[in-house]
Structures are given as C-alpha cells and as structure tokens.
C-alpha cells in the first residue's frame, strides 16, 4: 500500500490533432479532499474519465488503490463513486429507482432493503420530496444532487466528482461542500472544479492543470506559501517618483509594481522578510525626503488567495 488513492505517471492522452494531457504525474493521498483545478479545456474531465475506465490513456500509467486503470478497471470501479460533469439518467426512472438501480451494481437487493440505504442517501442530498418523481422532470441542480447521491450510494473508498457544484445554487453548493467534508472521514474525494472559493474552503490538497500540464500540486497552504513571498499593498499620494528605486535597494524588498492613477498611486511591494517589512516599510516611506510629503492613504498586507495563484500559473493577468 502506497498511501495514495490515485497515482499517475507520465499520463498522456491524445485525440486526433489535440494532446489533452501531457505526461501527468499526480499523487492523491488517501482520505484527502483533493481539488483538481484548471481552465476550460485543460484536460480535467479527460483525466477523470481515464481514471474510471471511460477513456484509455495513450501513454503512461494510472493506478487507483494500486490497481491499474487499464487492466483492473472492474476492481477500481467497485471501490469508486463517479459523478459525471452533467449527470444523466434514464428519464422515466424516479430518483429512488435510479439509486436502487445503481446500488445493485454493488450489493444485493436484500442488502439494500435491510440497510435502508436508499432512504438514507436521499435524505443526505435533500431529495426527500422528489424521491418518487421521474428524473426527466428534475432541474439541473436536482440532477446534480442525485448524481452525488448515486456516486456515494455504495459508500465508496474514493469519490471522483467532475464539477460537483457547478449547476447548484448557493445553498446547494454549501450542502455539497458539507457532504464532501463529511465524507473525508471515510473516503478520499477527488474533484475537478473551477470554483476556486470552494476549493479553498474544503480542500486540503490541490493540483492545477493547464493545457494538459500539471503546473502546481500540493497542500493548499504550501502552494500559497510557495509564491514570491508576502506582499504589501499601499495607496500613496504625493511625489513618489524616486521612491521606487529607494525601496528596491532595501535588502528585504523583492520587487515592486506601481500603478499610477490621477492622484493616487497603487503600490504592490513583495518582500522576503515579513517581520522587517512590518516594522520598517511605513517608516521608510514616511521618512523619504521629497518636495511634498508622501501621504499613505492605505496600507494592507495582501493575502494571496488561490484565485491569484491560479491566474498566475495559468498565465492570466489578474489585473
């Protein structure tokens, strides 16, 4: 046992004229909530489909609980719950029938009845009122809830969810995130998303995929810390023409970006010694000799969030 629920080595997926994944090396620790991020078309869904045997890799390998996804897919699928990006079911079936039908892939009907599985899971996803209505009349959000329910109906060791909160309203999103957090005790949750706020809220590990390449991977805290260092944001008034070169010369300042406005200029100062910056930065600015006094309108320590890192690593301008 490796301690990893998912491991991929040099995973490649090519379609005619397109390389969707370019040698992916990914490790998802067991009992983690792992957010798999990337812009549209980055290759997230392709990756997830390969893990559950819906697509075959062009090269490289992938293992789930040490089982090869190509040769031991049945063993893998018996331990995995999968939610597709836009879950679809047979429209004539009720939610209860969908869940019963799904559960029978894993256990006998008598076990399902004895365990009261279906009612329990319907309650968890909040579909009690709709349980006996045909799925064809469900809204996108209700289908999504049902999709989450069917993915976990057999209490899998690993949940693979493709955009689980995408079609949900804020309450639905909150509920799904809560479900995912509760599952952490017993399962590993590997999910793709572009809702960065959700990732930061519930995930303990993330990977960022861009154009088929993994550009960042690890615990969220580490990824946030791995950036260029603490950053201070200031808004200044007055003659600041030569201030930049003065500050750049300080040992503990890494870089400075200035955006000049009509009256106020916005400064982003990256530092390599946060303590020193907290103590000295304001003093350096206030005491800098100029013709007119420099006024500090705003001074904040900028907290880097996942969205900024995401934008940075996928090559977008956050401004």
């Amino acid at each position: 046992m490796t301690g990893f629920a998912i491991q991929t080595h040099g995973l490649v997926k090519e379609f005619p004229g397109v390389v969707a994944l370019r040698g992916l090396d990914l490790q998802v620790p067991e009992k983690s909530i792992f957010g798999f991020l990337g812009p549209n078309g980055a290759g997230k869904t392709t990756m997830l489909k390969m893990l559950v045997g819906l697509m075959k890799p062009t090269a490289g390998s992938a293992h789930i609980f040490d089982h090869d996804v190509e040769t031991e897919s049945m063993k893998i699928r018996s331990r995995v719950g999968y939610l597709a990006q836009s879950p679809k079911f047979y429209d004539h079936m009720s939610a209860r029938q969908v869940l019963n039908f799904t559960a029978k892939f894993f256990v006998s009907q008598s076990e399902i009845d004895e365990g009261n599985w279906i009612d329990d899971i319907i309650k968890v996803v909040g579909l009690e009122d709709k349980a006996d209505r045909p799925v064809g009349g469900f809204s996108g959000g209700e289908k999504q809830r049902l999709g989450i329910a069917q993915a976990q109906v057999h209490q899998p060791d690993l949940l693979i969810l493709d955009e689980p909160a995408a079609a949900l309203d804020p309450i639905g999103r909150r509920d799904v995130l809560k479900i995912m957090e509760n599952l952490k005790e017993t399962s590993t949750v590997f999910y793709s998303t572009h809702i960065l706020d959700d990732v930061q809220r519930v995930s303990d590990q993330v990977a960022i995929l861009n154009e088929g390449v993994l550009v960042a991977q690890g615990p969220i805290e580490t990824i946030l810390e791995d950036q260029d260092g603490p950053m201070f944001e200031l808004k200044l008034k007055g003659a600041t023409e030569h201030l930049k070169s003065h500050l750049t010369a300080l040992d503990w300042v890494s870089s400075i970006q200035v955006q000049n406005g009509n009256d106020v200029s916005k400064w982003q100062i990256m530092v390599n010694d946060k303590e020193m910056a907290e103590k000295e930065l304001l003093r350096e600015i206030m005491n800098y000799p100029t013709e007119t006094t420099i006024k500090v309108v705003e001074f904040t320590e900028k907290k880097i969030d996942l969205e900024e890192i995401f934008m940075k690593v996928v090559g977008e301008d956050t401004s």
């Binding site: 489909k49 559950v52 045997g53 819906l54 049945m74 699928r77 018996s78 995995v80 999968y82 597709a84 836009s86 879950p87 679809k88 079911f89 047979y90 799904t102 892939f105 894993f106 069917q150």
Partner: peptide
Amino acid sequence: TSGTAEWILSKPIT
C-alpha cells in the same frame, strides 16, 4: 449521446 452509457459504465460492469 445522452450520457447514460457514461453513468452505467462507471459502475463495475463490463
């Protein structure tokens, strides 16, 4: 095209 094959074949069935 409807996605039901994807749903079914993500379960342990050949």
